[in-house]
Design a protein around this nucleic acid. Structure first.
Ligand SMILES: [Mn+2]
Ligand SMILES: [Mn+2]
Length: 563
DNA sequence: ACCAGTCACCCATAT
DNA sequence: CATGTTGTGG
DNA sequence: ATATGGGTGACTCCACAACAT
């Protein structure tokens, strides 16, 4: 089979094969999420001529749902009109379909607009394309604009969006909005990684059935269209009412709480404090609870505030939430972490972590800018068998890189003996075990360990210089606090010499420790993992003026102190 | 990290 | 005409 | 002086062509 190579034409059947794989998956494993007529359409598509499947596969990788026909020239689709006709029969596309005129006009070149509406746009040649479109839409009806356009160009609209959205969600999961789901195939195929074939649950999906999936897609849509809804108070209030009650399904419940948190933030910013409080109160998001407390405090409702803080301090779902509840409205308590200050002898560098790492290297140390890679790496390598164990319901679609329940409260408990076994193995084997884990799992795609040369070099040095006790302290914190431990780890890994490792959080002038960073520093302190905070002090104005025109001096004078 | 989330930076304000 | 933005494609 | 906290924007794969400015 010919491989996919970047910048070279894909094999003729590449996109078609991808579409076929998706169809085969949903038609065999996810039938209950579709109506009979939807199943008939999917079945018809799976049996359609190659040209039709090839064209649809291409359309799905592109942005939007409306395309000019002239942009659909694909060498692997020999008979374009025939392919369009097949897809139109399945109600998946519609030629010259009536869609909003501005979307159509935007597909045309600016020069084409000027030609097609030469009279109306006379004298506007220097205006922006968007202004031309606005002018046309203001002057003519959508129908009139479409008729004029249709005399010059033809277009194709993907009308099967509802069905396609459902198929995509079941196969790819619900992905980030900035990436088209179908690029997952390309990214996998371009990398050297082998794709992991983990057993995907047969009947169990993330959702019980069609209704739950619909509810989830609806939540996603609402989050995406929040800006629009915010212009219409009635819609927003309806959304608030709809979202009042918790869901039994945890994915739905998380989506509901996230939506409420977003709504609350916007309401608060707009000064609608009463409604904002309502949104925050309905939400189960720790961030929403913090906003709730802050707004109540600002409104002078101190008793309610007190009660909430007492509850959060005891039952807060993250350590950061508990720490917040214990200090608010007071300041952060001073931590135990060692603090070192460097007086800069040059203007503050643009990338302070890179600068600090270089300084450590100048002094003979090994230094990497690693951030949250360290906890991810240690957790992923040392606890791989526990993380990827075939726990029922934890792997539900083919591109999943981590178990579905990773951030659920009982993630650890459901795998307790697996974690214990892995921990015992690590303790018995010592630091070199980390490297053994690398070789054992190398190449299998996952959410925690990037199998790059750079990370391999780091792993070698960690295995040589970091005591297993320290590795496990970090990995265990992740295992017990998966959601919270994904962020806030110090910027740099520094190995000053054999066995002399420390983690360094760099702070530029005016920057400060964030709550998630304080959580990690406390964990490192409690388990005696060497670490410190490095504050870069800005060069004084006088000095900066004096050295204008001098060559950059990268020397930094250090002065240590204890906090 | 299972689906937006992390991080540094800016700036006004509080202590 | 040079530069920036957007979309496509592997 | 330093801490706080609200807010913003870059980044998320990379190369390149077409188009807009
Ligand atoms: Mn950082
Ligand atoms: Mn930092």
């Amino acid at each position: 089979m010919t491989r996919l190579v970047a910048q070279q034409p894909a094999p003729a059947d590449y996109y078609e094969r991808n579409l076929d794989a998706v169809l085969a998956f949903v038609l065999s494993k996810r039938r209950s999420f579709f109506t009979d007529s939807e199943l008939a359409r999917l079945d018809g598509l799976a049996r359609a001529p190659a040209g039709a499947r090839r064209l649809l596969a291409r359309l799905l990788t592109r942005k939007g749902r409306v395309f000019l026909t002239r942009s659909l020239r694909y060498s692997e689709v020999a008979d374009l009109p025939g392919a369009v006709a097949e897809l139109a029969d399945l109600a998946l596309v519609s030629p010259n379909h009536a869609v909003a005129a501005d979307r159509l006009l935007n597909l045309c070149r600016k020069s084409e607009l000027s030609t097609m509406w030469s009279a109306a746009l006379a004298g506007m040649a220097s205006r922006r394309k968007g202004e031309l479109i606005d002018a046309l839409c203001a002057r003519y009806s959508d129908g009139a604009l479409r008729r004029t356009m249709a005399s010059e160009v033809s277009w194709l609209v993907v009308t099967g969006s509802a069905l396609i959205e459902r198929v995509e969600a079941l196969f790819f999961g619900v992905g980030p909005v900035y990436r088209e789901p179908w690029t997952s195939f390309v990214l996998q195929d371009l990398s050297e990684l082998s794709v992991v074939k983990r057993p995907v649950s047969e009947q169990s999906s993330q959702f019980e059935g069609r209704l739950e999936l619909d509810a989830y897609l609806d939540l996603r849509r609402r989050r995406r269209w929040l800006d629009v809804a915010f212009e219409r108070p009635k819609v927003l209030q309806q959304w608030l009412r709809d979202s009042r009650d918790p869901h039994a399904n945890r994915s739905l419940e998380r989506g509901r709480s996230a939506l409420l948190y977003s709504i609350g933030q916007r309401l608060e910013r707009a000064g609608e404090l009463r409604l904002a409080l309502r949104a925050y109160r309905y939400s189960d998001d720790p961030g929403a609870r913090e906003r709730l407390v802050r707004v109540l405090h600002r409104c002078g409702r101190l008793n309610t505030c007190e009660r909430l803080l007492a509850h959060m301090a005891e039952h807060g779902s993250t350590l950061a939430e508990q720490q917040f509840a214990r200090r608010f409205p007071g300041r952060h308590p001073v931590g135990n972490s060692r603090v070192t200050s460097w007086q800069l002898a040059q203007p503050t560098p643009a990338r302070i972590e890179t600068f600090a790492a270089q300084q450590f290297r100048v002094n003979g140390a090994l230094a990497w800018h690693t951030e949250n890679l360290i906890p991810r790496l240690l957790f992923g390598l040392l606890y791989w068998p526990a993380i990827f164990a075939p726990v029922p319901g934890s792997f539900v679609h083919p591109f999943q890189l981590a178990p579905l329940d990773l951030n659920w409260p009982d993630f650890y408990r459901r795998r307790e003996t697996l974690f214990s076994d892995a921990r015992q193995n690590a303790q018995d084997s010592g630091s070199a075990w980390l490297l053994a884990c690398w070789h054992k799992h190398h190449g299998l795609s996952n959410a925690f360990v990037p199998w790059s040369e750079r990370v391999y070099a780091l792993t070698v040095e960690l295995a040589a210089s970091m005591p297993m006790r320290q590795m496990l302290a970090i990995a265990d914190h992740v295992a017990h606090n998966t959601r919270e431990a994904r962020s806030g780890f110090p910027d740099l890994t520094v190995i000053h010499g054999p066995g002399n490792i420390e983690f360094v959080e760099v702070k530029g002038p005016g920057d400060q420790l964030q709550p998630n960073q304080r959580v990690w520093l406390r964990v490192l302190d409690a388990s005696n993992v060497p670490h410190r905070v490095l504050r870069l002090k800005a060069m004084s104005v006088a000095k900066r003026t004096a050295r204008t025109g001098e060559a950059a001096n990268t020397n930094a004078r250090s002065s240590a102190q204890h906090a």
